[in-house]
Design a protein around this nucleic acid. Structure first.
Lengths: 341, 341
DNA sequence: TGTGTTGTCGTAAACGTTTACGGAAAAACG
DNA sequence: CGTTTTTCCGTAAACGTTTACGACAACACA
């Protein structure tokens, strides 16, 4: 059914070598023959078989995107990733690269899935999401010399790979700034208990801003829980039971914020009225919650595009004339002021 | 770097044929040698190169999932798809199949992207989402004899391919039933104007239920708009301006419902109080909106798993002993009663 | 002992490409 | 006209597998 380069060559009475060279735009082929080849290719509806290409060239022209649903995300996963994925995929497609999505089982590490991709050479490079502070996927890929880029920074692996991160530190800082400007002094911070790096960055910014304002960091106002609604619901009462309860809470995750607001409501506390609330990563939920939640918003789709570019710039096969580059970028978040603070 | 089957054979002093047969569990290899091969494979960290396999076997062991963001979905895409994708990917992974995600540009057809996948043999089969009533992707794949399955039914292509759909007809029916039981007689239906098949199914159920209750269908109470918030916002006033305005509205899309509620609010109409509202596909937003929105919920993650199974059952290479089967299933939605109706 | 059967393995072709190499013809040059 | 260069193309190897086929030995059977 599918026509091969042999069919094309036979049809034109020339060798497959010439056909291949003509199609790949090599110089040593007569302009006339090239024309004939291209026309015949169109007529016979010929497209090169990717498996054959991959084998010969040692490159699959596909990139694996590895993300890991958090446990408890059964019903609806991170809305976070869809626009990112869209951008990533769009830019890769421009370079004729495919995107393979690899998910781990929620809650367990993904080493086996990753090893499989790498060892069987199913992809030319990997994009890692859900970056952890200490990330064994990064260690593995570095050691294996397999190209990759990460969404989010990590302490693992040095700066040998491109990374694109959101400026959670600055967001934590700005959130405190904003709350202090509005008269708050007792500000709680609630973040996921997982080793995810953004939780640390956020807390750094939070601490830095408090110090700048001469406010002492109260450990009772810092708490962490599961990175989902239940986690927020469980951990918020903890900070409220502090001797000296907060008048404002910054949540480092949208799902946790929603659970936290539920807990507050049950305590008779109304966000935006009795308690200021700021959410670090905005999702559509923040806009429709009542009260609407002030939040920091990333530009996910452009970030996807950008990380694709950064990954490609690090690959010898795709780097431009100035050679391969390892790029690190940290993107700011945009504050969306709403009713909750 | 990566060890090939030749390295393994050389190391063991046997032929690559035997190594391959040993690894693939064929019968004609001595139990002893098989043992040695397996051990050596583990020791040398050998995994078969997928490109080589694909070329020889004429199968890539990867499935393409094709979805198309609706125009206007810039910021956050369909939360719908992540859990479905998770299920799909999970089941495919159990069969050692990869999942490739192909998105079109929002708003335009995806024929070129699809053709590329098919013609270059980048995948063994395709899963189609955003099924349209008349879907040229289905026509193309049928004609090309390329295996595929769809999420959602279509009028194209006969029943030659597996399909898994949500029972929108029944949801439309039940929604009307519920509203009538609560005393409503003037019930509006708002759906996307695109050719997406579910919009038709929904309307069928809506009409059927009205007829059963002896209520005349008022065309002024049926409207369609862009499948996003703006669409709902624009089209809802239309039905409200009807001489005999509705006391209840069924929205066939969550984003349209939110836009519709916004329009209602601006008219001083409060959902759940002055107007009953039911949403056909539940998303997390429905749960957090104020008032919380009564909605019909699909089980997306199991649906993803199931469609993977159905696709595999239709593929000769994966079908069980009873041979290939083309399965069609329609899954019910679960009513989540909340405050808005 | 001769013949058929079974178990095990090696050989080599095949999948569809790309590409290094060399050769023939044409063109350029003296 | 001889020589060198250029242009163009064919040949064949290579990528890493799987698998059809045949070979050989061991074994069973008459």
């Amino acid at each position: 059914m599918a026509s091969s380069i042999h069919d094309l060559a036979r049809h034109l009475n020339i060798s497959i070598g010439t056909v291949s060279r003509a199609l790949n735009g090599r110089a040593d082929v007569n302009a006339d023959t090239r024309q004939r080849v291209l026309e015949a290719a169109r007529k016979l509806n010929y497209s090169p078989n990717q498996s054959g290409r991959s084998l010969r060239q040692g490159a699959t022209r596909s990139i694996a995107f590895m993300l890991q649903p958090h446990p408890g995300d059964q019903q609806y996963g991170e809305p976070f990733f869809i626009p990112f994925l869209t951008g990533l995929q769009a830019r890769l497609a421009e370079h004729d690269l495919d995107l393979m999505v690899v998910m781990g089982e929620p809650g367990q590490y993904q080493q086996e899935r990753l090893r499989r991709v790498v060892e069987t050479r199913r992809a030319d490079a990997v994009v890692l999401a859900n970056t952890r502070r200490e990330d064994d996927r990064i260690d593995y890929l570095s050691k294996a010399g397999f190209p990759f880029a990460t969404l989010g920074r990590s302490q693992s692996g040095g700066d040998t790979y491109p990374s694109l991160d959101i400026d959670f530190e600055r967001a934590g800082d700005e959130a405190v700034d904003r709350l202090v400007a509005r008269g708050h002094r007792r500000i709680a911070a609630i973040r996921p208990s997982l080793d995810l790096n953004f939780g640390y960055l956020f807390l750094d910014g939070y601490r830095k801003a408090l110090k700048r304002h001469g406010i002492e960091v109260d450990p009772n106002l810092i708490a962490d829980g599961f990175i989902n609604e239940t986690g927020g619901y469980q951990v918020t009462p903890q900070v409220m039971r502090s001797k000296n309860p907060p008048t404002a809470i910054i949540f480092n995750n949208d799902a946790m914020a929603l659970g936290g607001c539920k807990a507050l409501a049950e305590m008779g506390i109304k966000p935006g009225h009795d308690m200021a609330v700021i959410v670090i990563v905005d999702t559509p939920l923040c806009r429709y919650f009542s009260p609407t939640l002030t939040a920091f918003r990333p530009s996910l789709e452009p970030m996807g595009r950008r990380l694709a570019e950064m990954l490609l710039a690090s690959l010898p096969a795709f780097a431009g004339p100035e050679g391969t580059r390892i790029i690190h970028e940290v993107w700011p978040l945009e504050l969306i002021a709403r009713e909750s603070d």
